[in-house]
Amino acid sequence: MSVSIPSLPHAHARPSLLPMSILRRLPLPLHPLTLRHHLPRRRFATLAAVRQDTSVWTPTPISSIEPAAESLFHVSIDVSDSPDLASSHTLPGQYLQLRLPDVDKPSFLAIASPPSLAAAGGVFEFLVKSVAGSTAELLCGLKKGDVVELSQVIGNGFNVDKIDPPEDYPTVLIFATGSGISPIRSLIESGFGAYKRSDVRLYYGARNLRRMAYQDRFKDWESSGVKVVPVLSQPDNSWTGESGYVQQAAFARAKQIRSPKGTGAVLCGQRQMTEEVTSILVADGVSSEKILKNF
């Protein structure tokens, strides 16, 4: 229904001369900022999904899945036929998304292998925690040859340039809990110059030895210059090593920071741990810019 509005004779004419019954039917002008509220919610939900799903997904086959520890699995994925994807892994600490057919929600996974393994061997390795009802649980139930999809490698990784050259930062303290050891493995095996530093310590926390992955690699890590300090929060009676939490027990007892200005740190794991360790280090004079995280 169209409504004809009579022209007003001069500037002082009052619009209210129109009957209220007509005014109620007049369409109100829509401000650009309120336009979205007048469009169907479903359309905007679809547009938002299109904007967010910008990942390029690459189908890749699984090379192997093996137990790594209680509830943890080694997952190797063949990226040899995807050289662009393999070469996009340039720094330890980077991660990607992995999705499975017919599963809507992808998983974010830190790459456990060093970048050199993807470049030379065409393989990405992951340490995956199987959580009931998650995409990770479904992934851990797959077998060799099953195909998954990987996004491009993302994240800034650990910016080790901030703790170089080694002679200026002889002390590097590394902290990891649970599956957070995954990108730490990538760092250590990437050769960040641990052997050139006089004091590199890894405080690795887990509930018990059954939950601690990569124990078979500790000897090699130590030979590269990293002192490994396992810390168990719920050890059995036979355990004689460090117990408690890495930030509250082992590290607090043996900080031994000789020169805060020459100290760097790398953290990955539970949020409470990373926040508490950061607070302790900063209070001791370590620059927050030298405390590296991969997120």
Results as ranks from 00 to 15, higher is better:
residue 8 L to N: 13
residue 173 L to H: 10
residue 115 P to Y: 08
residue 229 V to R: 13
residue 255 K to V: 13
residue 246 V to M: 06
residue 40 P to A: 05
residue 124 F to P: 02
residue 150 L to V: 01
residue 155 G to R: 00
residue 286 V to D: 07
residue 275 E to I: 12
residue 281 L to G: 08
residue 288 S to Q: 11
residue 293 K to V: 14
residue 174 I to M: 15
residue 88 S to M: 04
residue 96 L to R: 00
residue 3 V to P: 00
residue 227 K to Y: 10
residue 295 F to R: 02
residue 252 A to C: 14
residue 196 K to L: 13
residue 247 Q to M: 08
residue 26 L to Q: 06
residue 197 R to Q: 12
residue 198 S to P: 01
residue 287 S to M: 02
residue 22 I to V: 11
residue 290 K to F: 04
residue 244 G to H: 10
residue 101 P to Y: 03
residue 80 S to I: 02
residue 89 H to A: 01
residue 101 P to G: 03
residue 182 S to P: 07
residue 152 Q to V: 04
residue 267 L to D: 08
residue 196 K to V: 03
residue 176 A to Y: 10
residue 44 F to T: 12
residue 74 H to D: 07
residue 127 L to K: 04
residue 185 R to P: 04
residue 72 L to V: 11
residue 194 A to N: 07
residue 195 Y to V: 09
residue 2 S to T: 13
residue 69 A to I: 08
residue 42 R to N: 06
residue 295 F to W: 05
residue 245 Y to D: 09
residue 97 Q to M: 01
residue 205 G to H: 08
residue 188 I to V: 13
residue 168 D to R: 15
residue 276 E to H: 05
residue 3 V to W: 12
residue 253 R to D: 14
residue 269 G to I: 07
residue 141 G to D: 02
residue 125 E to K: 05
residue 145 G to D: 06
residue 289 E to I: 04
residue 91 L to A: 04
residue 115 P to E: 02
residue 219 K to L: 05
residue 67 P to D: 05
residue 101 P to W: 00
residue 66 E to S: 13
residue 91 L to K: 04
residue 176 A to V: 09
residue 192 F to L: 15
residue 86 A to T: 01
residue 81 D to H: 06
residue 240 T to A: 15
residue 95 Y to D: 03
residue 196 K to D: 14
residue 106 P to A: 03
residue 120 A to W: 02
residue 115 P to N: 01
residue 24 R to W: 11
residue 69 A to K: 08
residue 137 E to Q: 12
residue 21 S to L: 07
residue 213 A to G: 13
residue 98 L to Y: 00
residue 43 R to C: 09
residue 99 R to L: 01
residue 197 R to S: 07
residue 74 H to V: 05
residue 73 F to P: 03
residue 198 S to E: 05
residue 60 T to Q: 00
residue 29 P to L: 05
residue 116 S to H: 06
residue 101 P to N: 02
residue 70 E to L: 15
residue 272 Q to M: 12
residue 66 E to I: 06
residue 227 K to E: 14
residue 259 S to F: 08
residue 204 Y to P: 08
residue 114 P to I: 06
residue 207 R to P: 09
residue 2 S to R: 11
residue 75 V to D: 02
residue 142 L to M: 10
residue 16 S to T: 15
residue 290 K to A: 09
residue 72 L to S: 09
residue 249 A to I: 13
residue 147 V to D: 00
residue 132 A to M: 12
residue 194 A to S: 14
residue 92 P to W: 00
residue 133 G to N: 08
residue 41 R to P: 14
residue 179 S to G: 05
residue 282 V to F: 08
residue 278 T to G: 07
residue 145 G to S: 04
residue 284 D to T: 07
residue 215 Q to F: 13
residue 250 A to C: 12
residue 151 S to V: 00
residue 85 L to I: 01
residue 17 L to H: 10
residue 151 S to H: 01
residue 231 V to A: 09
residue 91 L to M: 06
residue 149 E to S: 03
residue 64 S to W: 01
residue 17 L to V: 15
residue 7 S to I: 09
residue 106 P to D: 02
residue 212 M to H: 10
residue 115 P to A: 01
residue 56 V to W: 04
residue 112 A to C: 08
residue 246 V to G: 10
residue 41 R to L: 12
residue 139 L to Q: 04
residue 260 P to C: 15
residue 154 I to W: 03
residue 169 Y to H: 08
residue 146 D to H: 04
residue 102 D to T: 08
